[in-house]
Amino acid sequence: MTSDTTRIASGRGLEPRPPVRDLPPTTGDDGGDPSRSWRYRLSRLDVKFSPYLFIAPFFLIFALAGLFPLLYTAYTSLYEWTLGANDDAEFIGLGNYVELFSDAQFWNALLNTFSIFLLSTVPQVIVAVLLAALLNTALRGRVAWRMGVLLPYVASLVALAIIFSNLFGEQYGLINTLLQAIGVDPVQWQADRFSSHVAIATMVNWRWTGYNALIVLAAMQAIPREVHEAALVDGAGVMRRFFSITLPMLRPTIIFVVVTSTIGGLQIFTEPKLFDPNSGGGGGSDGQYQTVVLYMYQQGFLNQDVGYGSAIAWVLFLIIIVIAGINFLITRRIAGTGEAK
């Protein structure tokens, strides 16, 4: 993991550039040299410590707002701990984790999460890249088009919940009404597992595709035009240019999109929660669309079984790290193909 990330951290290697970081020497003895001015020493201090100052705010805020919740969940996950109950919390070691692995509802939630993830994140990232390519052409009224695809992102969640429940209502929903009008059987959006996943993935894709497209677009705009022109002169077609120039040059951004979408997709919570008319954590009458985070929320927050909820949180964390890591490696491979000239 470490060596891979060091590699993302060192930028892409399309055209070797003189490494700026080596400019002011960070090694070497300048101790008693009288010719070094205070200015130089200041500059050395700058180079040495400024990077830490620059990243310090993140770590400070994390220490304040992120660290304690993390330790708290780690601690409570070792207890049979019902929040605020009259009974005391009881230390059970890894008991919650052991229980989790034989918990059918957890596996069900994990399966749902993957299913919704595959139905949403995968097509979404692909469509986002293609959409970005379309938006990066010489459109008339480019501003309007680009901002238009981002509109879903500014919609209010309350409005979304209301509207999507109206769209996907089983008995009176707009989609089923239209289906029946053309003689097709209505879809059981809530009751049927797969249909409910499709409905939720639709919500997810609706909200996030444009957003991811613009992230990719922002990076596409940073690709120097000369590179494309050169390829054009060489007679490279649209597809070829896309796959051998655009995609590799977008590598850091694609990695970003894939990693964050993987994390976001596996932590999917808002949409299935909004989709549940009972607005609880159950994810349908029999958990047909309960995701892992929803299950965690139901156990840890709604049922106040904090110990068990925390154990779910930690297991999910590990699963996400593994899958995001795998996706990172795959993406690096795919997006890196154009690199070897």
Partner: peptide, 11 residues
């Protein structure tokens, strides 16, 4: 980023 935040509200 991979830490689920929904339970963080109490701590």
């Amino acid at each position: 980023l991979a830490v689920p935040t929904q339970l963080g509200i109490i701590p």
